[in-house]
Amino acid sequence: MKKIGIAVNQTKHSAIDVTRKLVQFLEAKSVTVFVDRAAAEKIDRPDIALDILEFQDKVDLVFVLGGDGTLLGVARQLANTSLPILGINLGHLGFLSEAEPEDLPAAVERVLRGDYHLEKRMMLEASIIRNGQILHKDIALNDVGIAKGSFGRMITLSVYVDDMYVDKYSGDGLIISTPTGSTAYSLSCGGPIVSPHTNVILVTPICPHTLNSRPFIIQKDQEIKVEVSAPHNDMGVTIDGQVGYKVEANDLIVVRKSLHSTTLVKWKERGFFDVLRQKLHGSD
Rank of each mutant, 00 (worst) to 15 (best):
D47R: 05
S30D: 12
D51K: 13
L65A: 03
A107P: 00
R110P: 03
H92T: 14
I129G: 03
K42W: 03
T81P: 08
T32H: 09
M123V: 01
L61I: 15
F95R: 09
I52A: 08
I129H: 04
E41F: 13
L96P: 06
A75H: 04
L50V: 02
A107R: 00
L50M: 05
V62Q: 13
A99N: 05
L78S: 08
I52S: 03
I43C: 02
R130M: 00
L72C: 01
N89S: 10
L65T: 01
V111S: 03
E119H: 07
G66S: 11
V108I: 05
G94L: 00
P84A: 06
D47N: 06
R37M: 13
S82L: 15
D68P: 06
D44F: 14
L61S: 12
R76E: 04
F55L: 01
L118T: 08
M123D: 08
A126W: 08
I88T: 09
V111A: 10
V108W: 00
P101M: 07
I128M: 06
E109D: 15
L112D: 02
I129L: 07
G114Y: 08
G91H: 07
L65P: 01
G67N: 04
E109N: 15
P46D: 09
Y116V: 05
R110E: 12
N89Q: 09
P46R: 10
E98W: 11
L71H: 01
D36A: 01
V108D: 00
L112C: 04
L96I: 09
F95T: 09
E109F: 14
I43W: 00
L90E: 00
L86K: 01
D115S: 12
R45D: 02
L50Y: 04
A39G: 01
F63D: 01
L50K: 03
V62I: 15
A79F: 10
Y116D: 03
K120H: 08
A38N: 11
G91Q: 07
P105Q: 12
E54N: 07
F95I: 07
L118I: 15
E98M: 14
V111C: 08
I43T: 00
G69M: 10
A49T: 11
E54L: 02
P46Q: 07
D51G: 10
N80L: 11
Y116C: 06
D36Y: 01
L53R: 15
V64M: 13
V35W: 01
L104F: 03
S82E: 15
K42C: 09
D57M: 00
E100M: 15
L61Q: 13
R76V: 09
I129A: 05
D103T: 05
L104Q: 05
I48Q: 02
D115G: 07
F63R: 03
T32W: 02
E98N: 14
F63G: 02
R37A: 13
L96Y: 06
K58I: 10
F34E: 12
R37N: 15
L53V: 14
V111N: 03
I129W: 02
L124W: 00
D51W: 10
E41V: 13
K120G: 12
P46G: 06
R37Q: 14
M123G: 08
A49W: 09
L50H: 04
S82Q: 15
K42N: 08
K42A: 12
G87S: 12
E102R: 05
K58H: 14
D103Y: 04
K42T: 10
E54D: 12
E102N: 05
Y116N: 02
A99Y: 09
L118Y: 09
A49Q: 11
T81K: 05
E54Q: 10
F34Y: 15
L53K: 15
H117R: 13
K42I: 03
